[in-house]
């Protein structure tokens, strides 16, 4: 099977083109379907999130809202303007505390409760997820007050950006 140089070249370019096209297609498809948007409790309250769609919920853990029942934990995520009850089964990150920022991934069920399957935390006591900071700022909840834990968390979070801390989910159920 003697191929001319030109044919060889064409067949190779064709093959490469096909692989790249498939790759591009996969990437575009995945970018449409497999990314998770960050939402605040207010966004959820305003019904901009369809039930069952995976979201990342960010806000503060409301003071006094943590209720542990065995390995299941119920808590309320707030951004000042709206609250959303959440539930999570598993071991929470070390730094999951009331009044602190939290980012959880999961879906809002028909019961209106957010079912988290992943709760994220950075390994620093001052960590405030950047999305939470910005969402809180947008809601006007952001004040530079001495007793507002959020206010102290944020500048520190910027500083710790240089730390060698892996920002990995610290807790997750599979």
């Amino acid at each position: 099977m003697a191929m001319t140089r030109k044919q060889r070249r064409l067949s190779m370019i064709g093959g490469a083109g096909a692989v790249l096209a498939v790759a591009a297609g996969l990437i575009l498809y995945a970018l449409k379907d497999e990314i998770v948007f960050f939402q605040s409790p207010s966004d959820v309250a305003e019904h901009t999130v369809p039930h069952g769609q995976r979201i990342r919920l960010g806000g503060l853990v409301k003071d006094g809202s943590i209720d542990r029942q065995g390995e299941t934990v119920r808590f309320v995520v707030t951004d000042g303007a709206a609250d959303l009850s959440a539930t999570y089964t598993g071991i929470l990150p070390d730094l999951f505390r009331e009044g602190q920022g939290v980012v959880a991934e999961g879906t809002v069920g028909n019961d209106g409760i957010f079912h988290a399957d992943t709760v994220l935390a950075k390994h620093d006591e001052n960590y405030m997820p950047k999305e939470v900071v910005e969402a809180l700022k947008a809601r006007g909840e952001w004040q530079m007050g001495a007793d507002n834990p959020a206010a102290k968390g944020a500048p520190a979070a910027d500083k710790t950006s240089q730390a060698e801390t892996p920002s990995a989910p610290a807790s997750r159920t599979n």
Binding site: A23, L26, A30, I35, V36, F37
Partner: peptide, 18 residues
């Protein structure tokens, strides 16, 4: 200004098949 997270599902969808 949209905040998104690109996690394992994206990479499973793209990196895996390749």
């Amino acid at each position: 200004g949209d905040k998104i997270s690109v996690g394992a599902p994206f990479f499973n969808m793209t990196f895996g098949p390749l």
